[in-house]
Design a protein around this nucleic acid. Structure first.
Length: 494
RNA sequence: GGCGAAGUGGCCGAGUGGUUAGGCAGAGGUCUGCAAAACCUUGUACAGCGGUUCGAGUCCGCUCUUCGCCUCCA
């Protein structure tokens, strides 16, 4: 079964084959670290996390690079404005480096909680100034760039394909309605900065052959991608808003120097919106992840994100996340039920051959098809729900599920919900059996209570048994009476 | 002005020519001492108007609406 990926360059789904058999090189645009991560970051990085996990599951060795942008780029315009990391440093009365390191740590904290696997290499822009200067020198040497007054610009006229990714190929036609100020030192209005001379008071600056200054904001990705992954990479991921100009500029810089395709597959994930409007750092409407995690478990957020496709917009709302939370709990309860039943021996021995089996292979086929179709996680999740229904249905029957079917179902969960999608809590967390998780004492206490309640029910003292159930519910513990006996679980705080 | 995406049942959200997406919420039922959970049953959905086709949510045209990019942004 082939993997199809939607390639933004060409706007069609294409069969994915890596350049070098068995090895996939992927670069994903990372965050600029001057503030805490928000839901938009979560959507992007959770989406690409599943891309990487699915590629790995499919047998590829994946080399995943994600940059950390810690060079202060500008707050408003490509040519004017303040460096945003410096701005935050002044605001917090500290050094820019402290800002970038503080928010880098914060970023990883949040991503770890979302169970986003870390990139193999996470280079930072400030640590790769020589590589960026080197790239500029090559561009000047080959006639693609020119220096003026300590600034260096890329000449878009030297690269006829400029704008091929976004479809903005006619540079002269673009200028009429554009909001960019005319800057006389540029040869063409669309030329973009590779190196900027530092203005007085600019904090983050380095020496270069042209001036004491700092690199242009498109340069780091080209320099670091080519350094760690080679001149042509398989996949470059990022947010849709970066298609133009960022990714088009990256293509221009890189291909001008190498004469080779820079990226084979461009993948762009869509935005998170709030009330239909894009959530952005510069707009004041972003949902901070740390705030969100105080209301919803990170895994609920991850599940919520994966219930829509990465190329679709995702509208944030409280009710939508709550609906996801309930759905995720149902899914996990079924896994828990499977894990419980696998260790449970019923009172009546039933012949294995008379027990219920499952069409696990059919579900396996369907979920593979979904994931191979441009990482269609919402369909993959719908397959899991269909499987959940089949499992519960089988478990509800008096014969019960066969040992083989139970094992296959557990493996299915652990592979797809667990390893690939990352939406499954470990058995350790879910199953409240003695010795299988840290809260052993709580387990023992609960066993005492459940036994007392079972005894009361046996004696038809329902007043007592209901009192135990109701009071436990008040403390956030829910009791369910199942065929396998009573079980308990902690209800979510919400 | 240019480039691009999208409008699906109460809500979220898949689906690109012909069989039920899925989840949440709602209704009825089974099970249960009662609940909860689970299971079963249940919903005149595809912005509007034309067109192509034996057949369209799915293709084409027009209209309306929304959103993204063109300035930092996942």
């Amino acid at each position: 079964m082939s993997l199809f990926i939607y390639n933004s360059l060409g706007r069609t789904k294409e069969i994915f084959e890596p350049l070098h058999p068995g090895i996939v090189t992927i670069y994903v645009c990372g965050p600029t670290v001057y503030g805490h991560a928000h839901l938009g970051h979560a959507k992007s990085y959770v989406s690409f996390d599943v891309v990487v996990r699915w590629l790995r599951h499919s047998g590829y060795r994946v080399k995943h690079v994600q940059n950390i942008t810690d060079v202060g780029h500008l707050t408003d315009d490509a040519d004017e404005g303040e460096d945003k990391i410096s701005k935050q440093a002044l605001l917090e009365k500290t050094d820019p480096m402290e800002i970038s390191q503080f928010y880098t740590r914060s970023f990883y904290e949040d991503m770890d909680r979302l169970d986003v696997q870390r990139a193999n290499i996470a280079p930072n822009a400030a640590g790769h100034i020589p590589e960026q200067i080197d790239l500029i020198e090559q561009l000047i040497k080959t006639g693609h760039a020119y220096a003026v007054n300590g600034n260096v610009y890329f000449s878009v006229e030297s690269f006829p394909e400029y704008g091929k990714l976004s479809g903005r190929t006619d540079q002269d036609a673009l200028q009429s309605g554009a909001r960019v100020e005319v800057r006389s030192e540029k040869r063409h209005l669309s030329d973009f900065a590779l190196w900027k001379k530092a203005e007085a008071g600019h904090l983050m600056k380095w020496s270069s052959p042209w001036s004491i200054g700092y690199p242009g904001w498109h340069l780091e990705c080209s320099a670091m991608s080519m350094k760690y992954l080679g001149e042509t990479i398989d996949i470059h991921g990022g947010g849709m808003e970066n298609k133009f100009p960022h990714h088009d500029c990256e293509i221009a810089q890189s291909e001008s120097v190498t004469g080779k395709p820079y990226v084979r597959f461009w993948m762009h994930n869509n935005m998170v919106t709030v009330n239909g409007v894009k959530m952005g750092k510069s707009l004041k409407n972003f949902i901070n992840l740390k705030d969100l995690f105080s209301i919803f478990e990170p895994m609920v957020i991850r599940f919520f994100i994966l219930q829509s496709h990465y190329r679709s917009q995702l509208d944030f709302s409280d009710v939508a996340i709550r609906a996801s939370q309930t759905g995720l709990e149902k899914l996990q309860e079924t896994y828990k039920r499977l894990a419980t039943v696998s260790t449970y021996s019923g009172s009546l021995p039933i012949d294995e051959s008379s027990k219920v089996t499952l069409q696990t292979r059919e579900f396996d086929k369907k979920i593979k098809e979904a994931l191979n179709d441009d990482f269609n996680t919402p369909v993959a999740i719908s397959v899991i729900f269909e499987f959940v229904k089949a499992i519960n249905s089988a478990l509800d029957r008096p014969e019960g599920l066969s040992i083989k079917a139970t094992e296959e179902a557990i493996a299915f969960f652990e592979t797809y919900a667990g390893a690939v999608l990352g939406i499954l809590k470990s058995r350790k967390e879910l199953v409240n059996k003695e010795g299988q998780y840290e809260g052993k004492i709580l387990d023992e206490v609960m066993n005492v209570l459940l036994n007392l309640r079972a005894e009361a029910r046996k004696n038809k003292d329902f007043a007592l048994s209901d009192k135990i159930r109701d009071q436990l519910l008040d403390t956030g513990i829910e009791i369910k009476d199942t065929k396998e006996g009573a079980s308990w679980s902690k209800k979510s705080a919400t």
